[in-house]
Simulated scan of single mutants.
Amino acid sequence: MTILIVGATGTLGRQVARRAIDEGYKVRCLVRSTKKAAFLKEWGAELVGGDLCYPETLPRALEGVTAVIDAATSRPTDSLSIKQVDWDGKVSLIQAAKAAGVERFIFFSILESEKYPEVPLMEIKRCTELFLVESGLKYTILRLAGFMQGLIGQYGIPILENQPVWVTGESSPVAYMDTLDIAKFAIRALSLPETEKQTFPVVGTRAWSAEEIISVCERLSGKEARVTRMPINLLRTVRHFLRFFQWGWNVADRLAFTEVLASGKPLNASMEQVYQVFGIDAQQTTTLESYLQEYFSRIMKKLKELDYEKKQSKKQKSKKTPFKQSSKVNGQ
């Protein structure tokens, strides 16, 4: 089976590619830059140049492909809008996959997207789900809540560097999941007929609020967080202001997602039946606490090593200084 992975250089996509390669699948990756995707080639993937926003590049990438795993999404640093990538691009990909006779299509969506029609990314995900269902393809939709990997930049690093940790509105508990675990479900779906034309939640072992995550980070790092609360009404005002300018549309659309994270409503779902269908042991799923513990143990060990090296360097300098001074005195 040949799999085309779209978005393979991203946080989730690279784990899906790694898992597929390790399990013996022939992996092809649609990439915009072969240079940035060089690590995928080193892993054993085939790289094909192309872009979701240029539909004419898709047919060549889909030649001989049995399944598509779509892990692509627009990034905050992209100049392209959410609509261009997550709607126009996905519609083109689904249509091209259908024309190419692709047998399976795995799509990553967001949990409870239907409940937030005013949030652009959530509404686009909902519409894409419907478009995929109506396409006639044998799809599997996996609805995610959040990645544990994102917590490092949001909480871990700011706390370690004594920088502000931003919390908006009434913190919504989120069932974050390790992208390595999400990849297991995506690849397993390819070989399970029971997952065809089905939608599943794929979330972590429990939902965590921002305050709970901060508390765990403080305990594991031994540092106190500088929590700064941003009123949700202020963000709404900024968002509405940015909508007046075309250059601000993309930023405004992204700020809208804070409505989800600051609503106070949990982003979580039961996984008991999902584990049974996929034949995956729930006990092997990474917990948020163990994920953060591993991160902080590695980083604290590294910091101790750097501190030790710094002290040793100072000792060596202090030993050399008297000799230099005495040689100068003798020289005079």
Rank of each mutant, 00 (worst) to 15 (best):
T2K: 11
L4D: 13
Q15V: 11
A20G: 00
A20E: 08
I21P: 03
I21Q: 00
E23Y: 11
G24P: 04
C29A: 07
V31N: 05
S33M: 10
K36Y: 07
A38N: 11
F39K: 02
W43F: 13
V48T: 13
V48F: 05
L52Q: 15
P55E: 06
T57Q: 07
L58C: 02
A61I: 01
A61F: 01
T66L: 07
S74V: 11
S81M: 02
K83E: 09
D86L: 14
D86C: 06
D86I: 11
W87H: 09
V91M: 10
K98M: 04
A100C: 02
G101S: 13
E103N: 11
I110R: 00
P120S: 06
M122G: 09
L132K: 08
G136H: 02
K138D: 09
K138V: 00
K138C: 05
T140Y: 03
I141G: 06
G150I: 04
L151F: 01
G153F: 12
G153C: 09
Y155E: 02
Y155M: 14
P158V: 05
E170I: 14
P173M: 07
V174I: 12
A175E: 05
M177R: 15
D181W: 09
F185M: 10
I187D: 07
S191W: 14
L192D: 04
L192S: 00
P201A: 05
V203L: 08
W208E: 06
A210F: 13
A210S: 10
E212L: 15
C217G: 00
S221Q: 06
K223T: 04
T228S: 01
L235G: 03
V238H: 01
R239W: 14
H240K: 09
L242S: 02
F245R: 11
Q246W: 04
T258C: 13
V260C: 06
L261Y: 08
V274N: 14
G279N: 00
A282L: 08
T285A: 09
T287H: 05
Y291K: 06
L292D: 02
F296P: 14
M300V: 14
E305A: 04
E305R: 15
E309N: 12
K310G: 09
K311C: 04
Q312A: 03
Q316L: 10
Q316W: 10
S318C: 04
Q325L: 12
Q325W: 10
